[in-house]
């Protein structure tokens, strides 16, 4: 049995930092000193939970340094919510311990799978959207929420293939997971653009069906352009370059509708110097600030 984090004594070792209306950046360890010297105000940082599941040492020292100064978002990438097998209880316990230790402002995971029959594939793999996969995803989201003692935000995937068997639209599927589990959503606009291009639908049609009222965070990132079997553009969710202009345009439109939401710029490969990544986050912040002046603040609570 895993001890419930709710049953443990609170560890008020970190200050509360509000994340509402802020832009953020992926935290990369090589940026630690630059960030601490720069002391940027009004930013949050997001980390991949699995990178902080060691016992001690530099990773935790760095994360504690970030967490004490900035709002933190904890983003799981390997829970395998979309997997067939029950969630890994050891992994749930490690995740719950991280949530307990760092008290992040946001916690999120993916509508994807990465482990099957005990083998870990280290990628966000797609699943067909059927009644059977829906039931399993809901079980897994609920199990994770029980284990960590709070709700999560579930992220829409970037996909490269479709499944003949799918009989739910992705947006309906996500809305039903929200309805059944009470989770929120992480809307990744780069993923929307990548999937829309890869599968030939309009990103605005997708977003028109997306349950925007349940979005607690937005992700922006860069993508690579390749070609598929017929020479059609095949976009890859590569997180290795600046956010593309059409994705910024989607972002302006969506933020105009929802009002300010915590917005992360992800950059995970070919990571640039800190000022470049900070510049991307500031570009998102400028759009958030524009929206804040025109949107009635307080109409909506951004953080879940």
């Amino acid at each position: 049995m895993i001890p419930s984090p709710l049953a443990m004594a609170p560890r008020p070792s970190f200050p509360d930092h509000a994340i509402a209306g802020l832009a953020g950046a992926s935290f990369k360890p090589q940026h630690l000193n630059a960030i601490l010297e720069d002391t940027p105000a009004g930013l949050f940082f997001e980390v991949h939970a699995e990178n902080y599941m060691g016992a001690g040492g530099m990773p935790h020292a760095a994360l504690a340094g970030i967490r004490s100064r900035f709002p933190l978002s904890l983003h799981g990438v390997c829970m395998s919510i979309g997997g067939e097998n029950p969630l890994d209880e050891d992994h749930l316990a490690r995740f719950a311990a991280l949530v307990e230790r760092y008290q992040p402002a946001l916690v999120s995971e993916h509508l994807a799978w990465s482990t099957h029959d005990g083998v870990f594939y280290n990628d966000l793999l797609p699943l067909p959207y059927t009644n059977a996969t829906l039931a399993r995803v809901c079980d897994h989201v609920s199990r994770m929420q029980d284990a960590i003692g709070r709700t999560i935000l579930l992220e829409n995937p970037a996909t490269y293939v479709l499944f003949a068997q799918s009989d739910w639209e992705e947006t309906e599927f996500l809305a039903e997971v929200v309805r059944r589990t009470g989770c929120g959503l992480l809307l990744d606009l780069n993923n929307v653009f990548v999937s829309a291009t890869n599968h030939g639908f309009s990103p605005m049609t997708y977003l028109g069906r997306f349950p925007l009222d349940h979005v607690g965070e937005i992700h922006l990132a860069g993508h690579d352009t390749q070609a598929d079997d017929d020479g059609q553009p095949l976009l890859i969710d590569s997180h290795d370059r600046p956010v593309a202009d059409p994705v910024w345009a989607l972002y302006r439109t969506i933020i105009g509708q929802t009002g300010p939401l915590p917005t992360l710029v992800e950059w995970d490969a070919d990571v640039p110097e800190w000022p470049v990544l900070k510049g991307e986050a500031q570009a998102a912040q400028a759009i958030l600030d524009d929206a804040a002046t025109t949107y009635m603040i307080g109409k909506r609570h951004a953080a879940c």
Partner: peptide, 21 residues
């Protein structure tokens, strides 16, 4: 069961996952 919009070859698409893994 792995396909693409309108059906047809999805070999290079599936290869993205193979390469990523």
């Amino acid at each position: 069961g792995v396909t693409r919009r309108g059906g047809g070859g999805a070999v290079r698409r599936f290869a993205v996952y193979r390469n990523n893994v």
